[in-house]
Design a protein around this nucleic acid. Structure first.
Lengths: 336, 336
DNA sequence: TTGTGAAATGACAACGTTGTCATTTCGTTA
DNA sequence: TAACGAAATGACAACGTTGTCATTTCACAA
């Protein structure tokens, strides 16, 4: 059979089969309006019959671009799904595909290393998803011809960055407490090395200090419910504790369970706010008020920033995506 | 400056700068041992000085392969993170990068459509992550030159498939109940259109029927805790209900909360098993026994299957990754 | 019919690599 | 020193597209 003769069908094969020139086949694909309808049909039939598929490599070589955005996942956690979702949807919409690589578990990857690997791949620009500190963060310089956007709460000297406003979210939650008559707010942190946890803590601290309140020592957690429970047991014994901000919903739930086990009621005795708004998925009739970040939106913004910067890779911007306070009934208004 | 003269530095530029031929530069990159050390050093310095980076398109064009595996996410849910993690790690290890596209929300994507889009991208093979039914599943034929692996519980006539053994996991959980003296097992399902839910239900049914037990009508849930709670309220009124299998942990938790609110104790009055083993993250001191699937392993297997099939795209295999029962204390042994 | 300008098509080079094969250089031995 | 084989290097074509520019075909008016 004719189709078995060659491994790959090229435009030339199609051209011969259709009795036209190579260039005409190219035109049928890239500027169909410029070729007569009868010719177009011939070419289309030939493509169909031979099973032609344009060669990505040749095309990119000629065009000098790939139509792909690189994504480096330094960290792949729960919220990452929504972010990838946002990145992928936005990419799709703008006609880009994603090329992804990941830091291996245990491996220590620097920004420079990530950039080096990415620049061997078919990408026009790249996004780094960076949730922890990395050695060469401040000294890193992105390749001059490859627009680079870093998703991180820290500011970078030369690259564009995009981030949730974690600090602002924490501040918002704190002020929510304070505006309802609470005199102080305790804080349960996530893992020490997590930038999210650090930012949330920073916002909490700032909000209290802005009102002249000395922040009490934060309690160290590890994101999971058990560590929240342990913190809750400690907090239950503090008479001045009327408000607790936990760095995520799981720990907030742990805190609430501990308080309950100690005979205290939420929100009547102690008010609680968490982060990420995901407890309702697991707990029926959940009452937990929570700060929710729009991970999807974050991804969309990051991708748009890359695409916008393709022509001017050295441009630099900083985008913050605000959080939202999802109100339920875990906070008591003490003024009432 | 010399570095500003050209947009992209080619091997030719390096060759001229180093005073060697184009081919020698190529050799320094691909077979360094075949070039004298002094020459190698000259070339390396030149590459450094000019900031040379090999052109992916040209290289792929010549080699006829990309070193990339395509991933199509028809569905991007919680467990997907671990799976992507597995795929990415395995890819990394074998020297492949990932090229990813995603079905847009609301868009209706068929396998043929996904294959068509992927074959325009730089990929040597592809993985479809398919968690719901799709119109052309049975009629789909993968491109002959592009190894295709589908992650799905259904068998496919021509493509290789990889899946968790969801049915087996459900059977295992059921038998766990039955072996401990339970005479019947109730089932709370996930969303109707989910293949996971359907498979889990099928396994539950099979396990009961194998012992000559008529399965009671399943209760319809939607994966979230509230639907589990509703189911739990119904089950609390059934005197013969001693064992409940919920299609995920969130609903299992809902069931347990409802039972408790109705004055029943878990496991003393009713035993419960869930799926996914994630409740411990959210609930302190969680007692829920759960069937856990190894999503990461699933991803690894899928990638390995693609890579193994690169040379023989039409080969076909079926891989099942077994689940694990994580025992806690939510099941009572009635024989004791 | 012929002439005209616009529309349609084609020939050829170029993108930056790697494979093939020829040539040069080198270290050794006669 | 000459001759030799092995090691190192180079010249050139090829991969499958798209851009440039030249050529052919067409519809229409004279």
């Amino acid at each position: 059979m004719a189709t078995m003769d060659k491994k790959n069908v090229s435009m030339n094969d199609v051209a011969v089969a259709a009795g036209v020139s190579l260039k005409t086949v190219s035109r049928v694909i890239n500027e169909p309006d410029s070729v007569r309808e009868s010719t177009r049909d011939k070419v289309h039939s030939a493509m169909e019959a031979l099973g032609f598929r344009a060669n990505f490599a040749a095309r990119s070589l000629k065009l000098g671009r790939y139509g792909c955005i690189g994504v480096v996942m330094f960290h792949l956690s729960g919220g990452a799904v929504d972010m990838i979702d946002g990145i992928a949807d936005a990419a799709e919409e703008r006609g880009f595909a994603l090329t992804m690589i990941k830091k291996r578990a245990g491996e220590k990857m620097t920004l420079a290393e990530a950039a080096r690997r990415m620049s061997q791949l078919p990408v026009d620009g790249m996004i780094f998803n960076l949730r922890q500190m990395v050695d060469d963060f401040d000294t890193f310089e992105a390749p001059k011809d490859l627009k680079t956007v870093i998703i991180t709460p820290m500011e970078h000297p030369t690259c564009s960055t995009v981030s949730d406003d974690q600090e602002g979210g924490a501040r918002m939650a704190c002020e929510y407490f304070l505006n309802r008559g609470h005199k102080n707010v305790y804080f349960v942190s996530g893992k020490k090395e997590s930038l999210s946890s650090q930012c949330r803590m920073k916002g909490w601290r700032a909000a209290l200090e802005a009102r002249g309140i000395e922040p009490p020592g934060p309690l160290q957690g590890d994101w999971n419910a058990d560590s929240g429970y342990a913190a809750g047991l400690v907090l239950a014994d503090k008479p001045d504790c009327t408000a607790v901000l936990a760095a995520n919903d799981c720990m907030a739930n742990g805190v609430m369970m501990a308080l309950r086990d100690k005979g205290l009621s939420v929100p009547d005795d102690v008010s609680v706010i968490g982060f990420d708004d995901e407890l309702y998925k697991t707990i029926p009739n959940s009452i937990l008020t929570s700060v929710k970040f729009r991970h999807r939106e974050l991804g969309v913004r990051a991708l748009n920033e890359v695409v916008a910067g393709l022509e001017a890779p050295s441009s630099r911007s900083r985008t913050l995506v605000s959080g939202v306070l999802v109100e339920r009934s875990s906070v008591k208004d003490l003024r009432a």
